[in-house]
Design a protein around this nucleic acid. Sequence first.
DNA 1: TTAGGTGCAAAAGCTTTGCAATGCT
DNA 2: AGCATTGCAAAGCTTTTGCACCTAA
Lengths: 151, 151
Amino acid sequence: MDQQQIVEILRKSGYKLTPQRRITIDALLAKGNEHFSVDELYRQVKEESPEVGMSTIYRTVQILEEMGIITRRNFDDGFARFELCERNEKHWHHHLICLKCNKVIEMQDDYLETLEKEIEEKKNFIIMNHELKVYGYCSDCYKNMKGVKFD
Amino acid sequence: MDQQQIVEILRKSGYKLTPQRRITIDALLAKGNEHFSVDELYRQVKEESPEVGMSTIYRTVQILEEMGIITRRNFDDGFARFELCERNEKHWHHHLICLKCNKVIEMQDDYLETLEKEIEEKKNFIIMNHELKVYGYCSDCYKNMKGVKFD
DNA sequence: TTAGGTGCAAAAGCTTTGCAATGCT
DNA sequence: AGCATTGCAAAGCTTTTGCACCTAA
């Protein structure tokens, strides 16, 4: 997703393209695929335009989230973080997390397509993104585990 | 997990069993398997003991989380929610979260059995628990959405 | 007895909002 | 021109903390 596409989506939705919004969009595109907090975005925007207010960033981020351009992620560190959505190449977040060594194994595949269709039909819910965390034991830890093993 | 087990865990960890804590434990057990916010818990506790302070609830919840009796869930709606841990029976957490009104729709079904088998085989990973969050728009919000709609 | 727990109120820290001024379209 | 948008400051929110008093063990 590039600037032009985002601007187009805003226009179609009846939002005005202000300089502040353009700079904010630039700033978040500069983050690439990395997640960012509103404050981090604010500081990056301020480098180019020091007069922009924090509330403008919050309001812009709100709109962009609503439009499905960015998604909110939570890392339980006290503030919300966001990430650019890749709508066409699905960029889902699947993680296998080992309870013993805390290793995080990333899953590239999207196993959930069938599941999604079912949810959209049965629950009447428009899916924009999802996040799956699987907790358990990686093979190494399981091998070396003392005591009771599970199945 | 019942009151006695929880009390036992507290005792073993050197925490005192105060009336406030006992009432709080009763209140969260009354929530069953539903998630609850600290405020919801606070109000339930107040029904029985109006003099209990909010900070006591916060502090008790903190301890219970640390002991592994409850788990924190974040739905990005401004406050933390908690859920009783079920140690032995697998208790999956599936939630549909509306990006607009923050409504959380719980999914009772476990759609992920096939997926699990695949992961265990392909990734050589012993699954103990998982958590799936699906973000999108509930039907009401989607109906009233301004501008571009997605499919 | 005494270390830990409680209630209150105030502080913290992220986020939202009211309002007058400003600026897209 | 008309109405959305902005910046500022103030308010709102949940959550944490300081402190004097209390209490379970």
